[in-house]
């Protein structure tokens, strides 16, 4: 089961659910983009809130995180079963 953690401000679209589980066919991985398309069918409106039409990528200041790790490939990153997917702000430091 791949778990997509839904940002709080999107939960009006998921009936309040904090996370959504997606069953993947055994042994398969899927890109984050494909995953979001699947979720869009269950909860219409998610895509429009997460994806900026001008760039066809995540809205600014948001990045794909798998567990606590920023996914370099972003929407193209592959997720598998047991993965936890988050959408969070990328961290920039100062010292």
């Amino acid at each position: 089961m791949t778990t997509v953690h839904i940002p709080a401000l999107l939960r009006d679209l998921t009936g309040g659910a904090e996370q959504l589980d997606v069953e993947l066919p055994a042994g398969e991985t899927v890109s984050v983009r494909e995953l979001l398309r699947t979720l869009e069918q269950r909860h219409p409106g998610l895509w429009a809130r997460l994806i900026d039409p001008a760039t066809d990528d995540l809205v600014p200041h948001l990045a794909v995180f798998i567990e606590g790790e920023p996914a370099g490939m972003g929407l193209l990153a592959k997720v598998g079963p047991e993965d936890n997917l988050f959408f969070l702000a990328p961290i920039v430091g100062g010292a």
Binding site: G68, N84, L88
Partner: peptide, 9 residues
């Protein structure tokens, strides 16, 4: 879990 979600290593 951190408050914003991910698990601490």
């Amino acid at each position: 879990l951190r408050a914003d979600g991910p698990k601490f290593p």
